[in-house]
Design a binder for these strands. Structure first.
Lengths: 194, 194
DNA sequence: GATGATATAGGACAGATGTCCTAGGGCGCG
DNA sequence: CGCGCCCTAGGACATCTGTCCTATATCATC
């Protein structure tokens, strides 16, 4: 099967993250993959098609992560912890380039790009998944959504600020606070005496 | 004095915020100001010079805001509240284009731009000012810095997420939580019985 | 009114960009 | 072998970019 198409999408994914969508040219991607510039047309008609493929990749990758977390975490609190800890796992890249989702959404928003809503869907995926966890904990639906969005916003802020400060260690402290927040939400529904 | 130069910087400021630095061309700025494209060279040698002028403007505007807050707020907590409430004052623009500071820093970071550090200084200004307030409250220096960065990150996250969700109202709830956070930090140093 | 500095318009310039076309290579199938 | 199909390379293309030049307009000063 067309492995070249996949390689293009993969290279574009990385470059869009590290340089931005607008700042990444066909030539950049061609150089990264090692194919000729004109050859692109056979796999992707336009740059927007590449963007769509990249978003598809990210959606798939996100789904995969969530499945892993679902399998790995015993309790909702454990699973939420998995989400929070992405910040630590990707610490170096986040400090350098920010959050892949957040920065893409921000850029596409400014460009008034057609695929803006598809990128925003990535946020919704995280939001919905987090809300599910809080509901399983015992929260009612609106509270769960509130908690979910709150954590999502916190993680975005940590990413942006660690990039601005160029400070790895800032992430660690904030992760602890976010875990505390989730734990506090959970403790409302557990036995006091435990 | 050269009012044209000022008008260019002002138009560029707006356009860099709403479209991004890279995506804004000389032609865009010229169109917005209503002057010819070639005329730019007389006022700014390069696009980077315009960016520097824009950052200067923002630094000056930020200083002005802080002076206003210093004069307006009676207590450190009041003044911190002024900062937090920018989110509400600029709600509509933030929902559409995100935070001007955060998105510029993010973009310049990805472009590895020379002026990246000058843009980051904008963050430091807010951070230092907030830390001062927390110190006046009674916090020791490291704690004050921690609180300051925490609030800065929170506000960034709120901006990013409200843009992604296209949701005005999300901001209001988060602002309340941030005010609570500041109040809790302050209450440590006030009389219990008050 | 003449002079000179400053501001402006218009366009030239090379390079890059996204898009598209064409010619040929490699390979399976009849 | 010969046909047809997918893949690739290389380059054409119009357009846009940032930069820069030159000729003209504006205006204060003498």
């Amino acid at each position: 099967m067309s492995s070249t198409r996949e390689k293009i999408a993969q290279a574009a994914d990385t470059l869009f993250y590290e340089q931005g969508f607008e700042a990444t040219s066909f030539a950049d991607i061609a150089g990264a993959v090692g194919i000729s510039r004109g050859n692109f047309y056979h796999h992707f008609k336009t740059k927007d098609e590449i963007l769509d493929a990249v978003i598809d990749r990210r959606i798939a990758k996100t789904k995969g992560m969530m499945e892993t977390w679902d399998a790995q975490g015993q309790t909702p609190l454990d699973r939420i912890g998995c989400f929070i800890r992405i910040l630590i796992r990707n610490r170096a890249k986040i400090t350098q380039f920010g959050c892949p989702v957040g920065s893409l959404v921000s850029e596409l928003g400014k460009l008034n790009h057609v695929s803006q809503s598809r990128a925003n869907a990535l946020f919704s995926m995280f939001g919905d998944w987090l809300a599910e966890q809080f509901q399983e904990m015992g929260c009612d639906a609106p509270t769960a959504l509130r908690h979910a969005r709150h954590l999502l916003a916190r993680s975005q802020g940590v990413a942006t600020l660690s990039q601005a400060l160029q400070d790895d260690e800032f992430i660690d402290g904030e992760v602890v606070l976010m875990l505390d927040y989730a734990a506090a939400a959970a403790s409302e529904f557990t036995q006091e005496g435990n």
